[in-house]
């Protein structure tokens, strides 16, 4: 097989949803045995997809299907508050990802039993040297096989669409809080300095919340914008 044919085949699997945005592509070795060609041919095929912006190569983490929603798309959303440096490329470092019980509070938020499970994923995103502390809570029933590493390439707003029930609306809460000791360490700022906390609730057309995101940023160096029409 020619590298162009392999590239085309992978491309159709990506656009057909066989490999959804943010998931990882099989490794070059796996692809090599799948297509029964040389490693060079595989690399050329993958390189072509990378240069077309369809696949992202992340150092040390492998190959990912590129997101469909660009940062520019997010910046153009009206009525949504977003940090102004969003368009820059970022570096994401997953800190923690585990399952936890829903518990009483999130049972109200997600309208599910307190005994069910939630993914708790937290990570630090560095954008132009500014750190953002993110925490994402996803109910297991809606995301039976969520892969946290997709957050390295896909914006949360797209990652939360990968579940069984798709969100359509976004409710945002935005407030000034103080950095606790924990937050000040993560954001590398002083304790008690002001921090902007954005809470994002993604909900379906039936107003059922399917994802919660908390975003913390140094308030004195972050500016947000929102457009209305």
């Amino acid at each position: 097989m020619l590298f162009k044919e392999i590239s085309k085949d992978l491309d159709s699997k990506i656009s057909g949803g066989h490999y959804p945005p943010g998931t990882s592509l099989p490794t070059e070795a796996e692809l090599q045995s799948q297509y029964q060609v040389s490693r060079t041919t595989i690399r050329k095929a993958v390189d072509q997809l990378v240069s077309q912006g369809k696949v992202i190569r992340k150092k040390g983490s492998g190959l990912f299907i590129a997101p469909k929603i660009s940062k520019q798309n997010i910046l153009e959303m009206t009525g949504v508050i977003k940090p102004s440096y969003l368009a820059a490329s970022d570096m994401v470092k997953i800190k923690d990802s585990y399952f936890r019980l829903v518990g009483s509070y999130y049972s109200l938020i997600f309208d599910i039993s307190p005994q069910e499970l939630l993914y708790n994923i937290s990570f630090i995103a560095s954008i132009k040297g500014k750190r953002t502390l993110e925490q994402v809570l996803l109910p297991l029933y809606n995301f039976p096989d969520f892969d946290a590493s997709c957050l390295k390439v896909v914006p949360i707003i797209e990652a939360v669409k990968s579940g069984k029930e798709k969100p359509v609306d976004l409710f945002q809460n935005f407030q000034l809080v103080e950095a606790t000791e924990e937050v000040s360490k993560q954001l590398q700022i002083e304790k008690n300095v002001p921090v902007f906390k954005t809470t994002n609730l993604f909900s379906t057309k039936d107003s059922k919340v399917v994802a919660v995101e908390y975003r913390l940023q140094d308030a004195l160096t972050t500016r947000y914008s929102v457009d209305f029409s």
């Binding site: 959303m77 009525g79 945002q172 407030q175």
Partner: peptide, 14 residues
């Protein structure tokens, strides 16, 4: 103070 924003059909931006 706190602020809230309620955006409908966020994926229809296209």
């Amino acid at each position: 103070f706190k602020y809230h924003f309620n955006a409908k059909n966020i994926y229809d931006y296209r």
